[in-house]
Amino acid sequence: MSDLRGMFVDTSICTGCKACQVACKEWNDLPMENEAAVRDHTAFTGNSYDNTVHLSATNWRHVKFIEQIGPDPSTADRSDPRWLMMSDSCKHCVQAGCLEVCPTGALYRTQFGSVDIHQDVCIGCRYCVGACPFGVIAFNQRTGRVNKCILCQDRLEIGMGTACAKACPTSSLTFGTVGELQAMANERVKLLHSRGQTDAYIYGWDLGNSGKITAGPNKGTAVKDVEVVGGLNVFYLLLDKPEVYGLPAHAALPQRNFVPSAGVALISAAVLGVTGLAAFRRNRMAENAIAEGGD
């Protein structure tokens, strides 16, 4: 357990500088997502300061911007203004949907507990894409394989931390062993609560914290730590409901459906079998009836 590596993402001190996003692209030498769009002026989204929109095969890290200037975006009320920022990436789930469904063993669990991809095994079937509850892993049209954050496997192997965490000027991203990070996260939540910022809670592990949202449209809503898919090795401190950050409140393994689905399928097959047999029996009986009935 102690050699599990991960990251703690403290969104309460994220300044949205995107250094992490750039550091990731630099270290992993990822191309522009859509150069044509940038060149012909179709890349501007008008979505706050976010012009890369979501994680992709070329953006393994993505910084989200959520403007909450006042309780209701449609009114002039600007009380308790907030601008939430969150740096997102692969969560390196303890129970990783992507890894579970991969039919080739391209996705694998590393010695650090993270989820890496053997690029030369991946057949590009995209099953993992549909299986990740967070929309993280993505198909790369250029290579015909999938890509996502690999927790800087290459750096970790030579004893370095992750590139994104290294670049983060506010230590909103911290790399370390999951145990240490959990302790750190817990302390941070307690500190914020003691300062009246009771909205802070942990997404990824249930460390027992709970509070109330203090601003924005969900002001007053109760929040508490959520553990999803058996825990996230890359986990978050959030200040509003998970959905606000585009995170599912109840992420789950796709396998939850396997046995039930197969069971129901078998039953339906049985029913079909029986009806099939019945059909033939019925016809035969009808025939015989006719045969007996007359000449």
Partner: peptide, 26 residues
């Protein structure tokens, strides 16, 4: 200014990773 660019942009608008973050004047 914005974080994503530097001044007249020579040091950033030419760099793909930064260009895509803030593609256009607003």
């Amino acid at each position: 200014r914005v974080t994503e660019h530097h001044l007249s942009g020579t040091m950033t608008r030419w760099l793909p990773w930064l260009a895509e973050l803030m593609p256009d004047l607003f």
